Amino acid sequence: MFRHLLRLLLLCVPLTAFAQAPTAPVRLIIPFAPGGTADILGRLLANSLTPIVGQQVIVENRSGASGFIAAQATAAAKPDGQTLMMSFLNLHAVSKQVPGMNLPIDPDKDLTPIVNVARVPFILVANKNAPFNTVQELIAYARANPDKLSFASSGSAGGPHLAGELFKAQAGVSILHVPYRGGAPAVNDIIAGNTTMIFGLLPELIGQIQAKNLKPIAMLSQNPNPLVPNVPLIRSVLPNYDNDYWYAISGPAGMAPATVAYWNEAVNKALQTPELRQRLERQALEPIGGSVESFRATIKSDYDKWGDIVRRAHITAE
């Protein structure tokens, strides 16, 4: 009788009532090297989460293999909420669709999406002596001179590559793609005049823009950014162009719904604090937050959007 009554009581209690705060320091695995956008975002979020969850959130950088070394380490961890990772758009929505990409895990099966964290605006910048100053001039020049212009990227099928291919598809132009092993050598070659332009992350380019080493052409996001208030939106020329990158929090597969709900709520609380929001804004990062369901919907939408670009541009793994 007692067991039957206990079972009934348990069925009446919401899952979230079982959500427990972590009982030991939490690992937040960052898939890229220290100093980049993901690392900066991860450390800001970890500092804000620590007082909320009552345990230290420790950042652990695991770079390599386009983020999949970190993803593999996360997938191998116990699904108890003590190990999380800073996941990102390409990991969840692109990599599986790139022919030749040898993946150590399946993100759909081996990871649990928890919450989207921040949006990172893209900006189109060019060499100071590039033969255009606006998107209209760029399109006109590219149409008159097919493949004479080039755009750099930090690697095949990465965010800057996809952004460039989306531009080519919508503008109806042919521009040569030049992949590099990382963003720094790509930017250096643009400054040197060996490559024309890059569709890159604003936080990683703002220093060179402010130093006037690169010429800003257009913001690729839906809204202007206060760090570059005079840079026009590409949507004024290509109304359907929209390219913001995002970073999120995911965990290993098999996490209990209550644990997922706990971390979703914790991250949303952190993102609502004025201190974190101000720090993100200074880094050109826009907080997102929201439900697990809205994050999954974003993954699905971007999966469809970028999968179409991968197929149309015949993008393959390097």
Rank of each mutant, 00 (worst) to 15 (best):
I69E: 13
A313S: 14
T259A: 06
R3S: 10
G67R: 06
Q210T: 10
Q272W: 04
A152P: 00
E165P: 05
G54Y: 06
K168W: 10
A46W: 04
E318R: 13
G81I: 03
R62S: 09
P179L: 03
A256S: 11
G207K: 08
I52H: 14
L10K: 14
F151C: 00
E60M: 08
T196D: 12
R43N: 14
L149P: 03
A144P: 03
Q170Y: 00
L162T: 03
C12G: 12
K109G: 01
N240S: 11
G182R: 07
D110E: 05
G200P: 01
I191Q: 03
G54K: 05
I40V: 15
S250Q: 09
A152K: 01
G42Y: 07
D108E: 14
K215T: 03
I198P: 00
K148S: 11
K215L: 01
M255W: 04
D189M: 09
P99V: 09
N188P: 02
N133A: 11
N194Y: 09
Q72N: 11
T83C: 08
N230K: 15
L89A: 10
E204C: 02
L11M: 11
A140C: 00
W306K: 03
P34Q: 10
T273V: 05
R119N: 08
R119W: 07
M1F: 12
G81N: 08
P14Q: 05
A256I: 02
D110L: 02
V267Q: 03
G81F: 09
Q55I: 02
N90S: 14
K212A: 10
P107A: 06
L49H: 12
E281G: 13
T195C: 04
A38W: 05
V117C: 11
A142I: 14
E60W: 04
P287A: 09
G67W: 08
I29W: 07
L15N: 13
N133C: 11
R296V: 13
R312H: 11
P104K: 13
Y245H: 12
L201F: 01
N116I: 04
A266L: 09
Q210E: 12
G81K: 08
C12P: 00
P51C: 14
T50F: 09
G36Y: 09
K78I: 04
G182L: 09
E318Q: 13
N129S: 15
L28W: 02
I249S: 05
D147A: 11
R296A: 13
M101H: 12
D110C: 05
G172V: 06
N264K: 02
V187A: 05
L205C: 02
V135I: 13
T134H: 00
A65R: 11
S48Y: 04
P31I: 08
G193Q: 02
L166M: 15
V120F: 06
M1S: 15
I58F: 09
S95E: 06
G207D: 10
V173R: 01
L49T: 09
D108K: 13
T298N: 13
H4E: 11
P121F: 08
S294R: 13
R311Q: 15
K128F: 00
V231A: 07
L205D: 02
V310I: 15
A211T: 03
K148G: 10
L111K: 07
L201H: 01
R282V: 12
R282A: 15
P31R: 08
N264Y: 08
A46Q: 07
F199Q: 00
P104V: 10
P104M: 12
